[in-house]
Design a protein around this nucleic acid. Sequence first.
DNA 1: GTAAGTGCAAAGACTTTGCCCTTGC
DNA 2: GCAAGGGCAAAGTCTTTGCACTTAC
Lengths: 140, 140
Amino acid sequence: MEEAIDLETLCQQKGLRMTDQRRTIAAVLSKAKDHPDIEEIHRRAALRDSRISLATVYRTMNLMEELGLVDRHEFGDGRARFEAAPDAHHDHIINVETGEIVEFVDPELEILQRQIAERLGYRLVDHRVELFAVRLNQDE
Amino acid sequence: MEEAIDLETLCQQKGLRMTDQRRTIAAVLSKAKDHPDIEEIHRRAALRDSRISLATVYRTMNLMEELGLVDRHEFGDGRARFEAAPDAHHDHIINVETGEIVEFVDPELEILQRQIAERLGYRLVDHRVELFAVRLNQDE
DNA sequence: GTAAGTGCAAAGACTTTGCCCTTGC
DNA sequence: GCAAGGGCAAAGTCTTTGCACTTAC
């Protein structure tokens, strides 16, 4: 039912010159179910093709981010993390005990934020919600 | 009516050894109405006392953050920004055209986030909401 | 063929740290 | 007095960039 995001096709549609490196990086991100950082993307890409440098990963992620093909996150650990731009917006819960990141969507939250911005005289162009939390015990 | 946050007193209450440097930095932050970065805190501190090094500002901010006396923000420009820990939690709207940062409080938003976390099996310990927006035209 | 892309290493931006001197309590 | 704090400069981490070589179209 769910279809994997084909980042390579999106790159081509945007008119990007498709080098082997970009193809490989696109494949890595399309397959990723997590939010890898540059180092991790490079590691995974190198498994498929060792001719990829860190600099190229940096350049490619900046490029894809500008084109809106990937989302950049800063979860507070100092390095940028990425994911292929999802079809629908979502936010993140970060488990502060394990570092695990869970995605969620809440339409009510989306609407409320737009309302808050408008109430203050702004038009929302983007937003970021990060919930830092711990797992609930059964008895809580 | 509104009372300025006296960070120096809070530092003393936490048992911090009050050096001239810490006193000066605390005063800078207590007076700040914005979200200065390390460089800016250092610049303002140096106006009051030139014997303050950047390293001390870094060390002091890390210390005060750990004690919960200041909040650290990463607004996506690569450097950390700080504010004296406010009495009440608030969130931020970032004007993407001017870089201006506006604070706001919305109880409904606070409640909703807690509910979302609980629905997913988590207990919220902290959260971060950043709305990136532009000013509304009159006719929008 | 030619402009765009890449690898490599150097350089940048921000932050931390080792060492020795200074200072609060 | 003595351990905690600070100044300074070196080092660390993440990211960008200049240059010469390679490659997609």
